[in-house]
Amino acid sequence: MTANAYVLYLHGFRSSPRSFKARVVQKRLEELGRERELICPQLPASPKAAMELALLLAERHAPHALSIVGSSLGGFYATWLAERLDVPAVVINPSVNPLKNLEKHVGVTTAWHSDEPFEFKQEYIAELAALRVPRITKPERYFLLAATGDEVLDYRDMVAHYAGARQHVIEGSDHAMSEFPQYVDEVLAFCTQGVTQ
């Protein structure tokens, strides 16, 4: 990775920068002496506000020194950003069409890593619809890491949506991708390759 390269990590729904995979990425970059390269914001519940924040952070470093890693809903966001900024993205068990999954979560809920309540409003569904990428334009821009054992999202939807992209389909595992430490080097290597191309 170049000296001034950055990884923007986007967590999933009800998640945070303290999520398992975000901490794995942070720890690995620290071990490599590259901890300053990680940008990992707490995303607002509003998809529109989340992307405004991500764009603000990303555009400081894009397009020549940024790669994006997104998990679950963060993978959906990462795809929209990658298309907009023309940067490489790693999508981990990404939500391909969160409109059909998140409608049932409208209302007040809490994050996994906090007791602080937040509201997922009905209008956020329309905000998600506005961010949907029906078809990716440059498959080579993406690396899909998907688990067949994902109990929340169907990996076959992911494989179809990212057709032509680099794909690593893991047999078994789960939505959280408990074995993610085994794959973090592969993820960071793709980020490095994408930024330096």
Rank of each mutant, 00 (worst) to 15 (best):
I68K: 12
A54Y: 11
S67G: 15
V187R: 03
V69A: 07
F13N: 13
A147D: 06
A50L: 07
P88W: 08
E59V: 10
R135W: 06
W80P: 00
A62S: 15
D185F: 00
S95E: 14
L55S: 13
G149N: 06
R36P: 00
S15Y: 12
A129S: 11
P88I: 05
D86P: 02
V133N: 00
S16P: 02
E37N: 07
I92N: 11
P98M: 08
G107I: 04
P47H: 02
Q26I: 01
F143R: 05
N4D: 15
P63D: 11
I92G: 10
E140H: 10
Y6N: 14
A22P: 03
P47L: 00
E171L: 05
S67R: 12
G70A: 15
Q167D: 04
Y9C: 00
V24D: 02
I136E: 03
I125M: 08
E103C: 00
S178L: 11
T79C: 14
G75M: 11
H175R: 04
L145M: 13
A54N: 12
V87P: 06
A78T: 08
L81D: 11
S114T: 05
E151Q: 14
G164W: 05
K100D: 13
L99V: 08
E123Y: 05
Y77L: 15
V87H: 06
Q122N: 09
S178H: 04
F118W: 02
H175I: 03
S46P: 00
V25R: 02
R23N: 09
R23H: 01
A165D: 09
E59Y: 07
A65S: 15
E52M: 13
R141L: 03
H113W: 06
G75L: 12
R34M: 15
A146R: 03
L38V: 07
G74C: 11
S71W: 10
S71F: 12
A78I: 11
L8M: 10
S173M: 06
T110L: 02
L145A: 11
V184Q: 01
M158W: 04
R28D: 05
V24H: 03
P63R: 14
E119T: 14
L55V: 09
H105L: 05
F76H: 15
T2K: 15
G70Y: 15
L38H: 13
E30L: 14
G33L: 12
H64A: 09
P44R: 03
A22F: 03
V159W: 12
E103F: 02
Y9D: 04
V25A: 02
A62F: 14
E140K: 10
I39Y: 07
T79E: 15
P181T: 01
P41D: 11
Y77I: 10
M51R: 08
A147H: 03
